[in-house]
Design a protein around this nucleic acid. Sequence first.
RNA 1: GCCGGGGUAGCUCAAUGGCAGAGCAACUGUUUUGUAAACAGUAGGUUGGGGGUUCAAGUCCUCUCCUCGGCUCCA
Length: 599
Amino acid sequence: MNKRYDIEVIRHSLAHIMAAAVKSIYPAAKFGMGPAIENGFYYDFDLGGQTLAPDNLKEIEIKMKKIIGGGVTFERKEIGVDEAKKIFADQPYKLEIISDLENKGEQKVSVYQSGDFYDLCRGLHVESAKDLPIDGFKLTKIAGAYWKGGEKNKMLTRVYGAAFASKKELDDYLINLEEAEKRDHRKLGKELDLFHIDEDAGLGLVLWHPKGAMLWRVIEDFWYDAHLKGGYDLVRSPHIGNRRLWEKSGHWGFFSGSMYPAMEVGQSLEDLQAGKKPDESEQYLLKPMNCPFHVRIYKNNLHSYRELPMRWAECGTVYRYEKKGELSGLTRVRGFTQDDAHIICRKDQVRDELKKVIDFIAFMYKSFGFEMDKVNVYLSLRDPINKEHYAGDDEGWEFTENILREVAVEKKLNFKEELGEAAFYGPKLDFKIKDVLGREWQCSTLQFDFNLPERFDMSFVNQKGEQEKPYMLHRALFGSFERFIGLLIEHYAGAFPVWLSPVQAKILSVGEAHVDFCQNLADEFRQAGIRTEVDFADETLGNKIRKAAGEKISYVLVVGDKEAQSDMLAVRDRGSKSARQISKADFIAEVLAKIKNRD
RNA sequence: GCCGGGGUAGCUCAAUGGCAGAGCAACUGUUUUGUAAACAGUAGGUUGGGGGUUCAAGUCCUCUCCUCGGCUCCA
């Protein structure tokens, strides 16, 4: 390479080279879009029914290297819309893009010519293929992708490539990816015996094994404690609710696509199987969210302005019928527990409540080792063109969007604004964490709701004795326990800090004679509040140590004659290759201190 | 749901269309262990499931289920 280009320009240029290679191998190919992305690029093709297999990627890659080696140039031209339409007469997707540009008022478009290959493109590109790293890229995967991202549109074939400025950077990236896959929560969930998802029990429904359930419980206890200290009250609601409730909330219409079908209530399953008709027919639905129940609790009383803000929290398990292809480990399931809360407050309290929630989110992330600057924050706003799609009035939207932005700035959140990404019921602030493969998952969320207060006619009596509509905020800190625990497993690579570890201490017996002593010691630890297991198997000590290390136990204790005859313990810390001597009392105090400090 | 890859013992993986195997785990016995794998034996499978081609199918074809990577959607 004889010129220094921005990596994005290189990636984008490689996408074009790939398109040119595909064109020469599959002359009938129609081209969609081919942008640079994080770590590489992709391009969408319509190969007219022909499919690509992994072997084809190698073929395309070789062709690309030939084109690059040939030193083809990228020549930019500004041409009129009509001329562009002639050049791309046999490229329906490009024609559509040209029309879209024309509709936006563009009279000229830019095209790049590389040899005899033309591409419609805004740019930028390198000047010559000689500026591209011939061994710095690799085609990685084939996928389907809907044209323009629309589910109803034709599915094109998307080829992804990884691309870097040099071979070394590419190799580093590929090695990192392999390392990252070892931390995949689905792999660790199996290895550490935390959970599994059982085909016979139901897709997307997590079965938590003892160690996973313990991890959940520790997190949940911490969550409840923090909420009580943070001025929240707890509420509780059932798993199913009458169809009427969801008709009133509006979910029975706009959310039906994600809900499990209703069950008929009014008779037993046995009666149903016997073909009997129910005396009364009512339909109940598994809850896809907790909100309507919380609203009903609010509506059960009259409320004064003096009672606000109300902060009602519930770890509520909800069920959503996600499409099968969307399910993924713990991060996308069909039954999940939201760490939900609803804040109902006056307009003059909104700002303070938002700040408190953001502080709470930051506190949670810090407690679990996530650095706030690695969390991606999005401010989702209304699409200003289609205002009629949204619940609520302009004044309410302007107030809430502005105040969300102001508070986000004040709290120094590094956020991006996204027009048109708001929920129909209100603007929101979303916090997303990346998994080991770099995919973003929404965790914390802070959302205004104009829909439920309207539909359920929520109100409070203000200082003047008038009925006034409160502001309603939905918020979750983890998002869901399942997703958060999945990301947490990956974050710590399964080596949890002491306070979170399902098993904090494992006691290994040296010989048969020490089993009772080990079990008594374990009992003593448990009474003190340390989660302890004993391995008294008839195996060599070395093997028991190896297995305990594989389980990523925080402390491994070898107990034999020496320990039985004194108050000293031989403790091996996770990651250490040797043991240290410490008195029993000091060891217990050390572990308890770590638990208390969430270390 | 859509596009593509995959599915062999509890786990990790082998097996040109030609007798389904190994290691670990499990179980039994021996051994009683002092810091990262003691020894021997036993058992474990309609190769995800159904159908087809073939003298013969884990292997080829077909339908289906599950799973992985994308797309769409989403906590």
